[in-house]
C-alpha cells in the first residue's frame, strides 16, 4: 500500500536528530512536526523570520503578527527567536539549517528538482524553495512517486523548469525511500506491502535495486 500523508510525515520525522534545526516546507513536510520523537529536541525554522515555531494557536492566542511561511497563524516555543528575511536566508544560505524537507513536482537522477511552475498552467513562484535547495546539504524531497495516471515523477531528466540543479540526494515518495548517487536512484526502503517490481515500473530514471530493500517502519 502507498503511504498515507501521515505515514509520509512519520517517515520524514525519522530523519530528525536531537538538536537539529529543521526547515519544513508547506504540506506533508509540515505534518512531520507532529511526529518528533518523545525526548528529542528539534527547532523548526520558518523562513519568514522565526526560529522555534510552535503549534497552531488557541483561538484566544491568534496573533496577526505571528505567521509561518505558509501565512498560517502559529505560536512560538520557549527559546524561539525572531529576525528579518535577510537574516533568515543568511541562515539558510550559510548552511546553518541541519535538515530541509520540501515537496516537488519532479526529481531526476542527476539530483535536479522542479517544484515551482508549470509553464502555461501554473505560475505561483518559488518563494524560498530555490534558496533552500541551494543552501542546504541535507535535503529530503517528499512527493508522490507517479501521477494519478501512472506517469513517473522520478525521471531521467526533469521536464519542468528547475528549482535547483544537482542538489537533491534523498527522495521520499508514497512508495519508497531513494537516494541519488552518481546519476542513479538507489532504492533504500519500500513502503509496507509495496513490491520492488511496482517501484521499478514507476521509476523512469535509472534505478539501482540493492540485494536487501527493507520495508519502512511506519
Amino acid at each position: 500500500m502507498a503511504l498515507t500523508r501521515d505515514q509520509l510525515a512519520q517517515r520524514v520525522a525519522q530523519e530528525f536528530q536531537d538538536g537539529y534545526y529543521v526547515n519544513l516546507g508547506i504540506g506533508i513536510p509540515t505534518l512531520a512536526a507532529n511526529f518528533i520523537p518523545e525526548g528529542m529536541q528539534v527547532m523548526l525554522q520558518s523562513e519568514n523570520g522565526l526560529l522555534g515555531m510552535g503549534q497552531f494557536p488557541l483561538e484566544e492566542e491568534v496573533d496577526a503578527d505571528l505567521v509561518n511561511a505558509g501565512k498560517q497563524t502559529v505560536t512560538m516555543v520557549k527559546g524561539a527567536s525572531l529576525f528579518d528575511s535577510a537574516e533568515s536566508f543568511a541562515m539558510i544560505r550559510g548552511g546553518h539549517v541541519d535538515l530541509t524537507v520540501l515537496g516537488a513536482f519532479e526529481v531526476d537522477c542527476q539530483g535536479n528538482i522542479a517544484s515551482y511552475m508549470i509553464p502555461g498552467k501554473m505560475i505561483k513562484g518559488m518563494g524560498g524553495a530555490m534558496d533552500l535547495v541551494a543552501g542546504a546539504d541535507n535535503i529530503v524531497v517528499t512527493m508522490t512517486h507517479a501521477s494519478k495516471s501512472g506517469k513517473s515523477k522520478l525521471l531521467a531528466e526533469c521536464t519542468l523548469p528547475l528549482t535547483g540543479k544537482g542538489c537533491i540526494k534523498r527522495v521520499l515518495t508514497d512508495l519508497a525511500l531513494l537516494d541519488i548517487e552518481d546519476g542513479k536512484f538507489i532504492l533504500r526502503e519500500r513502503a509496507p506491502g509495496v513490491t520492488i517490481e511496482e517501484i521499478v515500473n514507476l521509476t523512469e530514471g535509472e534505478l539501482i535495486v540493492p540485494d536487501a530493500v527493507p520495508e519502512m517502519r511506519v
Binding site: A86, R93, G135
Partner: peptide
C-alpha cells in the same frame, strides 16, 4: 510584467 525572484535573493537584493 513579473520578475519571479527567489525569496532569499530578493531580501539580499534589497539589503
Amino acid at each position: 510584467e513579473v520578475e519571479l525572484t527567489p525569496q532569499g535573493t530578493l531580501a539580499e537584493k534589497m539589503r
